[in-house]
Amino acid sequence: MLPTTIVLSVIAIILIIVNAKKTGKHYEGLKSGMRLLLQSLPLILCAFILSGMIEVLIPVEFVQNWLSKEAGMKGIFLGSFGGMLLAAGPYAAFPIIAAIMVSGAGLGTVVSLITGWCLLGLSKAPFETAFYGVKFFIYKLIASIPFCLAAGILAHIIEIVLM
């Protein structure tokens, strides 16, 4: 956890310096980031509570049978379509995905879950249909499914071979 924080801090400092030199709006960036953090805080806290409850409620047998490395394709299918139903922004979705991962989900399931959430997530549906129509939304959804499954299968192979 600490190395990630250090890496992120270094990148943040570099961006502040670049912003200060290029635009002179680095304070504005800090303010904007803090404003976003304060706005998102209730959402993040609720997501943490939800993820904690998922972690204690999710039955071990379910994870072993359906989501673990041993579950194979079942976990990848469930991950892809679970991601679609995870209709929430990143501040809420990632703690939930992390809780599923901590419960023992396999890499294939986790990657297909994230990819499913990215590509199939129903939270974007109202915008896609409003701007480009139902037909576009359905075609994009159908076209995206193989990508989620392929990403999950690749991750599953990586887990079997390398981990």
């Binding site: 992120l8 961006l15 912003n19 635009t23 800090l30 904007s32 976003l36």
Partner: peptide
């Protein structure tokens, strides 16, 4: 906290 500092800077850049 650091992530949001980063996001804020990216939004300006």
């Amino acid at each position: 906290f650091v992530s949001f500092v980063l996001i804020g800077q990216l939004q300006i850049l």
